[in-house]
Computed example of a mutant assay.
Amino acid sequence: MTLALLPNRAVIRVGGPEAQHFLQNLVTSDIDSVSDTSGGYGALLTPQGKIQFDFLIYKSGGTYLIDTPRETASDLLKRLTFYRLRSKVDLELADDTLAVLALWGSDKDVASALVSVADPRLEDLGRRIVGPADAIAEELGTAPEGPEAYHAHRIALGVPEGLEDYAYSEIFPHDAGLDQLNGVSFSKGCYVGQEVVSRVHHRGTARKRFVLVESAENLPAMGTDVTADGKSIGTSGSSTALGDVHKGLALLRLDKAKAALDNGTPLFCGAAPVSVSLPAWAGFGWPQDAAAE
């Protein structure tokens, strides 16, 4: 069992009689599926369909809790306030007594937590917990690790996160795997950017995806070019050292990566030689005709 404290995450409370309706018409996920025992994952998009903010969503009583990067939490709160208009919705940034934690290697529920739910993105990520960190650690009988432990766990599973693996307002939900990780509802009504997302999904035109990269050498910072024959085929995300192996994520053009693999062309992330593979959860594959392109 591993418990990790995530001080780089903040919580925004969304309450009021119209909170559900407000969020349902705004974000990519289906808010109807979010309950006191089941969380959600989604994003607020730009009108052009790019990810402006990504987050996890929980429900505690009649209030929704948005678990989002602390670095941009104030910006998200301002954006939600902009969209609120005359809706009967209360918005506030929770104080630091409300901590975000991740738990894996145990499915134990946590009575001292305000929220304790399975991570809605992927079962193997474990549980997501919101509440008083000291009380939660005492109840579980373990001292929490730092965020590095969680990110190593997440990276090994191939799950990207905003700001850790990509900058906001630059990529589309399909690029970041939201369609694969329960982050987009294709059956609910309209939301900001919905037309673009729906068009990409139904036309099957998603060409870039996050994949796993591995190297015997240190992997460079996010945004470094991944190259084949000296030409960029994508950029790197976050990375971690797991023993003698360095693993990371990279957003690649699948057709160009597959063509390089078929042709035996070495791939590099910066100066580090890398191998690439698809995450185990991926419902997409390598393009079959990539070598011919």
Rank of each mutant, 00 (worst) to 15 (best):
A216L: 10
S238W: 01
F268D: 11
G248N: 06
E217L: 11
D289Q: 03
Y150I: 01
G177R: 09
G223T: 12
S215C: 13
P160N: 14
V196G: 01
P273G: 10
T235P: 00
A250C: 10
G62I: 07
H153R: 09
L181K: 14
V200L: 07
A73Q: 01
L56N: 06
A43S: 12
I171V: 15
A257K: 12
G204T: 15
A271P: 06
V89G: 05
Q24A: 05
D96M: 10
V276L: 06
L93S: 04
E139W: 07
V245Q: 15
E214D: 10
V197Y: 05
L44A: 10
Q52P: 07
L91C: 11
A271Q: 14
F210H: 09
D229I: 06
R13V: 08
S238P: 11
S238R: 14
C269E: 08
D229H: 13
A135G: 13
V34E: 02
L77V: 10
D165T: 01
P279D: 12
G39V: 11
Y191F: 15
E293D: 13
S60N: 13
A259E: 04
D179F: 02
A206H: 05
L77M: 08
D109A: 15
D107T: 10
V197Q: 12
A137T: 14
A280V: 14
G243L: 12
V14K: 02
G49Q: 07
V11M: 03
R13I: 08
K59E: 02
E214T: 15
T2Q: 15
R70F: 04
L91E: 11
A291L: 10
G243K: 14
I51Q: 04
L249I: 06
L252D: 05
I136Y: 02
V184Q: 08
D119V: 03
E217Q: 12
D109R: 14
G204M: 09
T224Q: 03
A113S: 07
G193E: 06
H174N: 11
L5Y: 05
T2A: 07
T240D: 03
A10F: 04
P279I: 14
A94Q: 06
L80Q: 12
I155C: 09
S60V: 11
F22N: 05
N25G: 10
F284C: 05
L157P: 14
G158L: 02
S232K: 14
R199Q: 11
A143W: 02
V130G: 01
L157V: 13
V130S: 01
A290P: 06
H202S: 12
G49A: 10
V184W: 04
V200C: 00
A257R: 13
V115Q: 01
Y191P: 11
D30T: 09
E170L: 13
P120S: 15
L85M: 15
V110D: 00
G237H: 02
N218F: 10
Y150F: 07
K256D: 03
S236Y: 04
A113D: 09
A102H: 15
S29R: 11
L3M: 08
V276R: 08
D54A: 03
T46S: 08
P266W: 13
